[in-house]
Design a protein around this nucleic acid. Sequence first.
DNA 1: ATGAAAGCGCTAACAG
DNA 2: CTGTTAGCGCTTTCAT
Lengths: 335, 335
Amino acid sequence: MITIADVAKEAGVSVATVSRVLNKNGPVSPAALEKVNLAITKLNYQPNVWGRRLRRKESRMLLIFVPTISNPFYASIVSGIEDEARSRKYETMLCITNGDQNREREFFELLFDGQADGAITLCTDRNDQEIRTVAEKVPIVQCCEFCENAEIAHVSIDNFAAAEQVVRYLHSLGHTKIGFIGSVNQFISSGERQRGFEAGMREAGLPVRKEYIAFADRDYSFGSGIAAVREILQKEDRPTAIFCISDVLAMGAIRAAGSLGLTGSRELSVVGFDNVEYATMMNPMLTTVSQPRYAMGKLSAEMLIRQIETGEKSGSMYLEHKLVIRDSTAGVALG
Amino acid sequence: MITIADVAKEAGVSVATVSRVLNKNGPVSPAALEKVNLAITKLNYQPNVWGRRLRRKESRMLLIFVPTISNPFYASIVSGIEDEARSRKYETMLCITNGDQNREREFFELLFDGQADGAITLCTDRNDQEIRTVAEKVPIVQCCEFCENAEIAHVSIDNFAAAEQVVRYLHSLGHTKIGFIGSVNQFISSGERQRGFEAGMREAGLPVRKEYIAFADRDYSFGSGIAAVREILQKEDRPTAIFCISDVLAMGAIRAAGSLGLTGSRELSVVGFDNVEYATMMNPMLTTVSQPRYAMGKLSAEMLIRQIETGEKSGSMYLEHKLVIRDSTAGVALG
DNA sequence: ATGAAAGCGCTAACAG
DNA sequence: CTGTTAGCGCTTTCAT
């Protein structure tokens, strides 16, 4: 292993000078600069990160908390974060919690013992208590999901408005009996989308019928979506449209409808949420709400780095969603 | 920040004793042990990793190279790796290369400058040259995909045998005109599955017809799958079954068939590969080949850690695949 | 503009 | 069984 001392000897200067060249701080004469650079390339020298970090007490490492990577929803958010981090010379580490509290805590330890400078969370519950205490001590930015009534920076879309818009769209198609599939999880998005749905119904002068609302499990699993939709569709006066708070649930809805003999969007219109890649692989292709995921990730990283470097928290940022209309929605069938 | 010296002072012992307690090596009297542990909890002391790593020259960090996380195929492999790594007290870092050579090289740097002890690659091309030179210097294990004729450890399934089995199954259903959708990428799995397909056809006494073979783009994208399948199905004497080397391509096949008026598996049987979660969300549910992904990840990590700790390379390991029969395959329609 | 030297927090060899 | 001490490789005063 080549050390800074080797380079200094090779260049005929002191380690201090080499260090100054490496970090481009302090004054260095052109002659010395040249000699040092020569020595560095000749020896193929790489500064040792442990020595540097021990000395500087900084890690230049960002943590990204995701519940799972089996959900393609997270891919482009992570890309956005990583691209921004790299351009600012930070490394990133994906912390896959798998919904396991212990694992989550172990990852938090990395923040406390200085292995990471800050974290972006993609999966905090609306009432998460732990994140509050963590965020008091280290820089945190929440992306997509966030904790209510907490002074922690976050970036997300306006889930309430998006859900309202879905209802407005469905109503414009002539639907008056509209169902809703939520989730029993504690994500703020789930709650806001439900509130937005209910507000949208009221604005449209439509009744919010308890029997048209059902909930999938916390992971939006396909199976639980099927079960929830079945529950609703087996009511005798069934809805003609269903708004699901995730695309996978929407796929479940279409499957459940099919198995009950309701095929095609004229029999049952379905709207999803998130616009994951698979939304266009389905038949029919899913009408859904798209979030600017890459941009959200990038902005989160920007905010986190600012917080790390300046200490100032960034507050809340809301980005624009978009309703993407495809084949899974249609006007109400006559008769 | 609390240091080992603080603990030593608090406990009334030397730093050496504290270190011995921390690392459970060297002899320590019960009395001293007690005092030290008390001090540690009282001060809430966390050893500084940079100091430790600088001293020990080990990182206890494993790299995992994946091309993307938007493909759920990788999720359980990564879980397998992470679980094994954690149980052996290693940390892991997901290196998402996005097919970018530069990014890949930057991640390799982490191995060279000691930030990581070894790596597991999930996406090496069959003819990748770079990995050979890297593997000469640092511990590497390849998972699923690997480099041909290289002395680098790997774990995978027998892709050739799996493809043969698919053909045998299709033939047993009465299919004689069987198409194949491969990929233009350079993965060994793509090549082996094609070779296995052709061997299977020959064994069954069936002709391998050039016009029944087409290729999707390197990422197995849905759209390119549709295009490839269309190409084949528009031949006048079209095949009655198609074997696709990935599930996403199989989804594309079903979509393409549908758009040409061929609906249902009696009109066109389709077999996929990988058994990703979405394979059961489709209608029809996909017949596919399942790889023991979690086990493969776990084994890869075991092998890598052994290589790191003992220096001995582990050679090649093959695990069992499984043909999972669902609804997308059926006997040939009469007439 | 440059170099000597202190010290970041830790481990381990050595002496007791 | 315990303590003293010499570094690991680096950055950064403080002299010069």
